[in-house]
């Protein structure tokens, strides 16, 4: 077994566009669930709308990349409003089912052959990051062609540009969430998580706050989808419910009611994923693990499931959460 390459690939999991995308989406879930107590099981839908909004605006409407990304973000705001206005009055577990259903609706609409011209249906879309007319995201790449970094952190100029851009977006998002949660606004939001009737009895418009929280978290999710899409093609197969669950796992790893927890959780998730996806097939080819390589790579998802269960049972506050501030109140 080539431990060197396993280690190398594992370390590479620290910083990839996917890791940043997960961190952003998990940050969105932290807003939703960790702080506002909204059980959103449809974060994959927000990501899909962000990504598709960007790709479609560039390809179909010929918008420049930044405008396309804005459309993606606006799309998620609209989605949050459409979803939130009717469903935020619902009890927690109903909201979970409504959001997971809404995300599936979004995915199926991107998948259906009825809109193939626009969405590319099952094949998805490609060629929107670099445009022949120079309006694409990679066309605006200020980094000269070349190879940068060292060891596992070696990137070409394109990936590096996505990473730099993604890290800037992530930093702004982290600041935004931090600034909000230390303010009186954040106090109301946390109060709603604990008992919305009580907050209502104090004269706060609970519904409006929840809607704001849903929109903000949704925008973070969409930004995650956009960063993910800025690094590769987009296809509907990515935005399945499993994606939502993996992001939940990242969130709970770090701690749902924390600011940096979701970011660190996403990093840990992807480092472990990178480690397992290199280790398990290697164990299988070298005959230590008596299974085929396909089975070996399936195993890592089994481990994700088991990990998620153990985490929620034994350390619900996450690795960085305050032991006393368990987010699971009810």
């Amino acid at each position: 077994m080539d431990w060197g390459s396993i280690l190398n690939n594992t370390l590479a999991g620290f910083l990839t566009p996917t890791t940043i995308a997960f961190a952003l989406a998990a940050l969105g879930l932290a807003m939703h669930f960790g702080f506002a107590g909204l059980l959103n099981f449809g974060i994959a839908g927000f990501m899909a709308i962000g990504g598709y909004g960007y790709a479609i605006s560039v390809l179909t409407f010929g918008l420049p990349w930044w405008a396309g990304m804005l459309v993606g973000v606006l799309g998620s705001v609209v989605f949050a409003l459409i979803l939130g206005i009717p469903t935020l009055r619902l009890r927690g577990d109903y909201l979970a089912i409504a959001t997971i259903a809404a995300a599936e609706i979004a995915r199926l609409l991107f998948l259906t052959t009825a809109f193939t011209d626009v969405t590319g249906s099952a094949d998805g879309l490609f060629g929107f990051n670099s445009r022949p007319d120079g309006s694409g995201f990679q066309n605006s790449n200020p980094i000269p062609q070349g190879t940068y970094g060292f060891g596992p952190f070696t990137y070409n100029e394109q990936t590096l540009w996505v990473l730099v851009f993604g890290l800037i977006v992530l930093t702004v998002a982290v600041w935004f969430l931090w600034a909000l949660m230390r303010s009186p606004w954040g106090r109301v939001i946390k109060g709603i998580r604990e008992d919305e009737e009580a907050v209502r009895s104090l004269g706060k418009n609970v519904f409006a706050y929840k809607l704001q929280a849903l929109v903000i978290g949704g925008v973070f999710g969409a930004l995650g989808g956009i960063i993910y899409t800025a690094a590769q093609n987009i296809s509907p197969g990515v935005y399945v419910t499993s994606l939502t669950f993996f992001i939940w796992t990242s969130l709970l790893l770090g701690g749902a009611a924390t600011i940096f927890g979701p970011v660190i959780g996403a990093v840990i998730f992807w480092v472990i994923q990178a480690f397992l996806s290199n280790l398990l097939p290697a164990l299988s080819t070298s005959g230590i693990l008596p299974v085929s390589t396909t089975q070996a790579s399936t195993l890592r998802f089994v481990l994700v499931g088991i990990g998620l269960m153990l985490l929620v049972i034994y350390r619900p506050q996450g690795i960085f959460g305050d032991k006393r501030e368990l987010t699971f109140v009810k």
């Binding site: 600034a179 909000l180 303010s183 009186p184 606004w185 954040g186 106090r187 109301v188 946390k190 109060g191 998580r193 604990e194 008992d195 009737e197 009580a198 907050v199 009895s201 104090l202 004269g203 706060k204 704001q212 006393r324 501030e325 368990l326 987010t327 109140v329």
Partner: peptide, 27 residues
Amino acid sequence: KALSLLTVIENMKLGAKGQSGESIFRA
């Protein structure tokens, strides 16, 4: 209906009316 995972003082401050920091932009 105590807001369990807020501190006592946060519970109290939540009650105050007309807080400008409760609007999302000023927050």
